[in-house]
Computed example of a mutant assay.
Amino acid sequence: MKTKLVRITTVPVSLKVLLKGQHKFMSEYFDVTGVSSSGQELYEVKDSEGINVVAIEMSRAITPLSDLKSLWKTYQFLKKQKPQIVHTHTPKAGIIGMLAAKLAKVPLRLHTVAGLPLMEAQGTKRKVLDFVEKLTYTSATKVYPNSKGLYDFILKNNLAQSKKLKVIGNGSSNGIDTRFFSPENINDEQKDQLKKDLNITASDFVFVFVGRLVGDKGINELVQAFSQISKNADRSKSVKLLLIGPLEEHLDPLQPETVQEIKNNPDILDLGFQKDVRPYFAVSDALVFPSYREGFPNVVMQAGAMELPSIVSDINGCNEIIVEGQNGMIIPVKNSDKLKVAMEKILSDTDLYQKLKINSRPMIQSRYEQSVIWNELLKEYKTLLKENNIDV
């Protein structure tokens, strides 16, 4: 009889994408069940990962009545299943899953922190989010910040004690599959066709951003910096900017002038959400990722594995994946002038660019290969089970 492991996320896409492959790996050692709100992705996880799934509705917003219903249903489920381990990801799943697991007397209650919305919150909202995080961590037996920066932030803000915290491996929730994210998987014919479709010429230097097009991803600063560069560019090395991701106008909308520049600048290609970002990395020269806050951004690891250097803001996660002058450049957060300087530097300094590019993939492979992260987490599970005298 295998030990029961329940993994909980707020929405099914997190189970499917952020933890892809990890459930299947863990199911070799545990009886794994994935829990999240309902949705097609939840049942795709069941098929692709070969695990049990259960739908329990959870809201991403602050909705007290709905949250109480979610808490009650999660408690009932855990009380019936009696798992030895409950491991939660994402903020709402964390508070509901950890409280329910404590009430159900689950011995090992684990929560991974992969970003903190409270970092950008102020006033009453910040106080509420602080309270929720503290309650989540108090209910957990172990908390895993997925970056050293998050670890430091949690300690500095007295959200949890150091004895409860641990970073798995070098950080990241799931590592990166460098066999999948490899430039070898995109052939010259595919690249040539995509360049033709996007009107990218041999003389173009292509910057790419992948993520939600919202304010706290630094899109306003990126578009402002790029606009100045594109207008002043030496036409022997023209520039383009690919924006890969959905425009979320209802959450943290972009400034009106940013939206207009995206629409009107012919060198900015707004390509929306793309299921497979690898071809777009393959026709690009550098990632620009000036986000305000992150946990441990997958996109920076993905770009590095695809041999792209990155320009990132000086925030946790980003400033751990990127080493200044080795595989990319680090700029101050919310600073379009410094971002412009970095983009111009990587454009003009060919020797620097080649050095960053050559180092990019090896520096991801050596620190964040997916199998390394999975085995470190498995080791952690087994250690905790042994310490608590629970048979594996």
Rank of each mutant, 00 (worst) to 15 (best):
V11Q: 04
P12K: 04
P12L: 04
P12Y: 09
K16Q: 05
K16M: 04
L19F: 07
S27R: 10
Y29F: 15
D31S: 14
T33F: 02
S38Y: 12
E41M: 08
E41Y: 11
L42N: 08
V45T: 06
K46R: 11
V53I: 07
I56E: 00
M58Y: 00
M58A: 00
L68Y: 04
L68I: 07
L71G: 00
Y75M: 08
Y75H: 13
Y75V: 01
K82Q: 15
Q84R: 10
V86F: 03
T90G: 02
I96V: 13
A100M: 00
K105N: 13
P107L: 09
H111C: 05
H111M: 08
V113S: 04
L116T: 03
P117C: 00
L118H: 06
E120W: 05
Q122K: 15
K125A: 13
K127H: 07
V132P: 05
L135Y: 14
A140M: 01
K142P: 07
P145N: 04
N146R: 08
G149E: 08
Y151D: 14
I154R: 02
N157D: 13
A160M: 13
I168M: 06
S172D: 05
G175M: 12
R179C: 05
F181Y: 15
S182N: 15
N185Y: 03
I186D: 05
D188L: 04
Q190F: 11
Q193S: 14
K195C: 13
F205K: 12
F207D: 08
F209M: 09
F209W: 11
L213P: 02
K217H: 10
K217A: 08
G218C: 06
L222T: 03
V223C: 08
S230T: 12
K231R: 07
K231H: 12
R235N: 14
S238E: 15
S238F: 03
V239L: 01
L243R: 09
L247Y: 14
L247A: 14
E249C: 02
P253E: 15
L254F: 12
P256Q: 09
E257V: 11
E257R: 01
N264H: 09
N264Y: 05
L271P: 00
L271N: 03
Q274A: 09
D276I: 11
R278S: 09
F281C: 07
S284H: 02
S284T: 06
A286H: 04
F289M: 10
P290G: 13
R293K: 13
R293D: 06
G304W: 05
L308Q: 03
I311P: 00
S313K: 05
I315N: 01
C318N: 00
N319H: 13
I321G: 04
V323W: 02
V323A: 11
E324W: 02
N327Y: 05
G328S: 10
G328N: 03
M329H: 05
I330H: 01
N335L: 13
K338R: 13
L339F: 07
A342D: 04
M343S: 09
I346P: 07
D349H: 05
Q354K: 11
K355P: 01
K355M: 12
K357C: 11
I364A: 13
I364V: 14
Q365S: 06
Q370H: 14
E376T: 06
L378T: 02
E380T: 15
K382D: 07
L385P: 10
L385N: 12
N388K: 09
